[in-house]
Amino acid sequence: AVTGSQTALLLRAFEKDRFPGIAAREELARETGLPESRIQIWFQNRR
């Protein structure tokens, strides 16, 4: 499950760019500790 702090970080990124590229998703994966594929799905679901 995604924690509150991970969600906050993802929401901030989403406000800046609703369609992040692979580099941005990989950076978010490093920052959150989540797999990049999970980040991609999160953005798809959020849109």
Rank of each mutant, 00 (worst) to 15 (best):
T32C: 05
V2K: 04
E31D: 07
W42N: 02
Q40E: 15
F19W: 14
R18T: 06
S37N: 09
P20A: 03
I41H: 11
I41L: 12
E15P: 00
F43M: 02
S37I: 12
Q44K: 10
R12Q: 12
I22L: 14
Q40W: 09
P35R: 04
D17M: 06
R30Q: 07
L34V: 04
A1D: 13
Q44R: 08
I39R: 00
G4M: 14
F43A: 00
F43H: 00
R18C: 09
L34N: 00
F43V: 02
E15S: 09
N45E: 15
L10E: 01
N45Y: 08
R47Y: 04
L34E: 02
F14H: 01
V2I: 15
Q6D: 03
L34Q: 02
F14E: 02
A13H: 10
E36A: 11
R47E: 05
F19P: 01
S37H: 13
R47V: 09
L11F: 04
G4S: 14
Q40V: 12
E27S: 10
A8C: 14
I39K: 01
R18S: 09
A8L: 13
F19E: 05
D17Y: 05
A8E: 14
K16S: 07
R25L: 15
P35Q: 07
G4A: 15
R47M: 07
R18F: 04
R47N: 11
R18E: 08
I22Y: 11
Q44S: 08
E26R: 14
L9C: 09
A23E: 13
L11Y: 05
A24R: 11
L9R: 09
T3W: 05
E31F: 07
Q6E: 04
L11W: 06
R38W: 15
F14A: 01
A13T: 03
L11A: 07
W42M: 00
W42A: 00
P35K: 06
Q44D: 11
N45D: 13
R30E: 06
Q40I: 13
A29M: 07
A1S: 12
K16N: 10
D17G: 04
L11T: 10
R46Q: 15
E31I: 14
R46H: 12
R12Y: 06
L28W: 01
F14G: 00
N45H: 11
E31N: 08
F19I: 05
T32N: 01
A24Q: 10
F43C: 00
Q44Y: 09
L34A: 01
E27Y: 08
T32M: 04
F19Q: 05
E26Y: 08
Q6H: 07
L9S: 06
A23Q: 12
T32Q: 00
G21W: 02
Q44H: 10
F14C: 02
E31Q: 15
N45C: 13
I22T: 10
R46S: 07
T7V: 13
P20R: 01
E26I: 12
A13K: 02
A8V: 10
P20E: 01
T32E: 00
A24F: 07
D17I: 04
R18I: 05
L11N: 10
R30A: 08
I22E: 11
E15T: 07
A23W: 07
S37R: 11
K16W: 06
S5W: 15
P35A: 10
L9A: 12
R12C: 11
G4P: 15
E27Q: 14
A24E: 10
D17P: 00
G33V: 02
T3N: 11
Q40P: 03
S37C: 12
T7H: 15
F19T: 05
G33M: 04
L9Q: 09
R38A: 15
R25P: 01
A24I: 09
F19G: 01
S5I: 13
T7N: 14
A8G: 06
E31W: 07
T32V: 07
I22W: 09
E36M: 13
R30P: 00
I41N: 10
R25T: 09
T7P: 02
F43P: 03
R46F: 10
P35C: 07
V2M: 15
A24Y: 05
A23H: 10
I22S: 10
G4Q: 14
R46G: 03
F14P: 00
R12V: 09
E36S: 07
I39C: 03
L10K: 00
A1Y: 13
E15A: 11
A23M: 10
L34M: 06
K16H: 09
V2A: 07
I41Q: 14
W42F: 03
P20M: 03
E26F: 07
A24K: 10
F19L: 04
G33P: 00
A24M: 12
G33K: 05
T32L: 09
L11G: 04
L9K: 09
K16F: 08
A13E: 04
A1H: 12
I41P: 01
L10W: 02
Q6T: 07
G33L: 03
R25M: 15
E27M: 12
A23Y: 07
Q40N: 14
D17S: 08
F43T: 00
L9M: 11
V2C: 03
L34Y: 03
I39H: 00
T7R: 14
E27P: 01
G21R: 04
Q6N: 06
A29W: 02
L11I: 13
D17A: 05
V2R: 04
G21T: 13
R25N: 02
P35M: 06
E15L: 12
R30T: 05
D17V: 04
V2P: 10
Q40T: 09
E31G: 04
F43Y: 04
I39L: 03
L34K: 01
L28P: 00
N45W: 13
E31M: 14
A29T: 04
A13N: 03
F19S: 06
A1R: 12
L10P: 01
K16Q: 10
S37V: 10
A24D: 08
A8M: 11
R12H: 08
R25Y: 12
E27N: 08
T3S: 12
A1W: 13
D17T: 08
K16C: 08
T3Y: 05
Q6G: 03
D17E: 08
E36Y: 04
K16V: 10
L34F: 03
A1V: 11
R18D: 05
I41E: 15
L28T: 01
A13Y: 14
L9E: 04
K16R: 11
E31H: 08
I41D: 14
P20N: 00
E36K: 04
S37M: 09
T32R: 01
F14L: 03
F14S: 01
L9N: 04
A29E: 03
A8N: 09
E15Y: 11
R47G: 04
E15M: 11
G33E: 02
L10N: 00
N45F: 07
T7A: 14
I39W: 01
R47K: 03
N45L: 10
R30V: 07
R18M: 14
S5K: 13
Q6S: 05
R12E: 11
L28G: 00
L28S: 00
W42E: 03
R18A: 13
F14N: 00
G4R: 14
D17R: 03
L28I: 08
R30I: 08
I41F: 08
G33R: 03
R46L: 11
Q6K: 05
E15V: 07
L34I: 08
S5Y: 15
Q6W: 10
K16E: 07
L9D: 03
A1E: 14
I39V: 09
A29I: 04
R30N: 06
R47D: 04
L34D: 01
E15I: 09
T3V: 06
G21P: 08
A13F: 11
L10M: 04
E27D: 09
A29Y: 02
I39D: 02
R18K: 12
A8R: 11
W42I: 01
S5G: 10
P20D: 01
E31P: 00
E27V: 11
E15G: 06
S5C: 15
L28N: 00
I39S: 01
A8F: 08
Q6C: 07
G4F: 07
F14V: 00
I22C: 08
R12S: 10
P35L: 08
R30W: 06
R47F: 04
F14Y: 12
Q40S: 10
R47P: 03
W42S: 00
F14D: 02
S37W: 15
G33T: 02
R38L: 15
V2D: 06
L10V: 00
L9V: 14
Q6Y: 07
T3L: 07
S37K: 10
A23C: 12
L28F: 02
F43I: 02
V2G: 04
L10H: 01
R38H: 12
Q6R: 05
L34W: 09
R38F: 15
A13D: 02
T7M: 15
R38C: 15
I22H: 11
F19Y: 13
T32K: 00
I39Q: 00
R30K: 11
W42T: 00
A1C: 15
G21S: 14
W42K: 00
E26D: 06
I22F: 11
A1Q: 13
I22P: 14
L28K: 00
E36D: 08
W42Y: 01
N45S: 08
L9W: 05
Q40H: 12
R18G: 05
S37E: 13
F19K: 04
G4T: 14
R38E: 15
R30D: 04
